[in-house]
Simulated assay, not measured.
Amino acid sequence: MRWFGFGFNSFAQICVPDKSDKEESGSAVGQEKVCVPVDLVNHRGRSKIRASWSRRASLFLDDVNLPLVPGGYISSKPPIFRSLSSHLQAKSLALGGEHAVLLTAAGAVYTWGQGSHGQLGHGGLISEEEPRTVEALWGMTMRSVAAGGWHSICVGDGGDLYVWGWNESGQLGLPSRGLRKASQQKGDQQAVFISIQAFPALVDVSPSCEISTVSCGSRHTAAVTTTGYLYTWGWGEYGQLGHQTTSSLDEPQCVEFFRNENLHVVDVVCGSWNTFTAAVKKEVLGLENVPELPPVSTGSELWTTC
């Protein structure tokens, strides 16, 4: 398995310079923005990577459940340890900039913390001191959750993707006014823009694929399909979307690099402004004849509000 990195590189999180690198022209080493996935050679075969703000990556060989601990969770302010109700039976916890998203063993989603950008998914902008169930998802089983700076994502048992929170940079995959100024100038009165999505919304990343895993950066999102394709969207100023540009997107777009390299993506981890992806050669998995991606539909049918 090979790990790749792209996006913010000011602290050499992606490319660590050495003597030979400094002499090479056109190398990504030393660049603040890395727009094309770079092979992290020293991380080949590793099982997990965790991104951090100013480091290349923190590596975990085993699954780590922190900040969950037996009977509760760790808080950033006193009391440091807070107990969880026994009926929650927490499975995993994702932390955003100012909020938390918890997934229970039964597949229910609870959120708490700052709610000023709709990131709690309760329909308003009110903060919550204690875990509160996301009622719009009640009755549907979720298998994973992720949190960005001010947005939240979860994946349903059937591979459906649900999003809510701030959409200023298109990080929800919903139409963003800031990214579609041309439509405004043309006087398109029918355009619908979403700046804050306070309830979970269903987004179709790819018409024929289910989502296997998802991760959130500060203002961007990345999702891996069950067929091994990586889709990214949101803020792209540092190349963290992997599309060889620094443009932002409010619609999921496949990262062509991995398809062109005949790589099957198996995992993705977002840092605040960068992205790390694990992939294997399709021949290794016996997937040489995986069909090409179908045409991507564009327009309002890509999303619906729950």
Rank of each mutant, 00 (worst) to 15 (best):
I126G: 05
P131N: 02
P207S: 14
L125V: 05
R2G: 08
G299F: 09
Q13Y: 02
A201Y: 02
Y162W: 10
Q184S: 08
N260K: 15
H99M: 05
K77R: 14
S169F: 15
E129A: 14
R82K: 15
D160R: 03
R55L: 10
A191G: 01
L241M: 09
E283M: 03
T232I: 04
P78S: 13
S47D: 12
A28V: 06
K282M: 12
I80R: 12
N42K: 13
A12L: 00
D63E: 15
V269Q: 13
G30Q: 07
V16Q: 14
L103N: 01
S169D: 12
N274E: 00
S218K: 08
Y73E: 02
Q114I: 09
A136T: 04
N262Q: 13
S176M: 04
S92R: 11
K77Q: 12
S208E: 14
P78H: 07
A279G: 08
L230D: 05
H117R: 14
S218M: 11
F258Y: 14
K281S: 13
E292W: 00
Q13W: 01
A278H: 04
L287R: 07
P131I: 01
G170R: 14
F193I: 02
G165I: 01
S218V: 10
A182K: 14
R180W: 02
V269N: 13
V296N: 08
A90K: 09
T111L: 02
E129K: 09
D18R: 12
V16A: 09
G118K: 02
H117W: 06
H43M: 13
V69T: 12
G165P: 07
T277F: 09
V163L: 07
P295Q: 10
T111P: 01
G5W: 13
S144E: 07
Q119V: 03
T245L: 08
S54N: 14
Q240K: 07
Q244T: 11
S215Q: 05
S116L: 10
L125C: 03
V69E: 11
D204I: 12
S212P: 00
D157K: 13
P295C: 09
A136N: 03
G107F: 04
W233V: 05
V280P: 00
S215E: 05
V214T: 14
I74M: 15
K282W: 06
G96H: 04
L287H: 11
G97D: 10
P131D: 01
C254Y: 01
S75I: 00
V41G: 01
F81T: 05
S85Y: 09
L263R: 04
E256M: 11
R56V: 03
Q185G: 05
L59T: 12
